[in-house]
Amino acid sequence: MSTPHVLLALLADGPRHGYDLKRAHDERLPRARPLAFGQVYATLARLQRDGLVFPTGQEREGGPDRTTYAITPEGRTGLEEWLSTVERPMPYVGSALFAKVVVALLVADPDRARSYLIAQRRAHTERLRELTADKTAPGATLDDIVAADFAIAHLDADLRWLQATLDRVADWHREVHA
Rank of each mutant, 00 (worst) to 15 (best):
L35A: 06
W161P: 00
P64L: 03
Q58F: 01
D111N: 06
F54I: 07
P30Q: 11
L142A: 14
R121L: 15
Y92E: 06
E61F: 08
V176M: 01
D149A: 13
P73N: 05
K100Y: 07
Q120S: 13
T136M: 13
D26M: 05
L166T: 09
T77H: 07
A153T: 14
P30H: 09
T165C: 08
A170P: 00
A42E: 14
T141K: 09
Y41H: 12
T85Q: 07
Q48K: 04
T56A: 04
R88T: 15
A157P: 00
L155S: 05
S84I: 01
T136N: 15
A178H: 14
T165S: 10
W172I: 10
A99D: 01
T132M: 09
P4C: 14
V169S: 12
K22G: 09
W172P: 04
Q120I: 08
I71T: 05
L35C: 08
A164D: 01
V53I: 04
R121M: 13
K22R: 15
A151W: 04
G57R: 05
H154Q: 15
H177V: 13
I152M: 11
D65S: 01
V176F: 03
H154E: 15
D149T: 07
V169K: 09
D171F: 13
D167K: 13
V40E: 04
G18T: 02
T43H: 05
E81A: 14
G14A: 08
G14K: 01
P73M: 04
G75N: 00
V169C: 14
E126Y: 11
D20N: 05
V86A: 08
A123F: 11
L166E: 14
V103H: 04
L11C: 10
A133D: 15
P138A: 13
D65R: 07
H173A: 12
P4R: 12
A70S: 03
A148G: 11
G38P: 07
A157F: 13
V93T: 11
I152E: 12
H17D: 06
G139P: 01
D158I: 00
I145R: 15
D171V: 10
I145G: 07
L10Y: 04
E27A: 14
W82E: 03
D20C: 02
D26G: 09
D143M: 10
A123W: 10
R174S: 03
R168E: 08
F37D: 03
D144Y: 09
V86S: 08
G78Q: 06
D167Q: 10
L21G: 04
D50F: 05
R46Q: 10
L29C: 10
G139K: 12
A147D: 11
V176C: 00
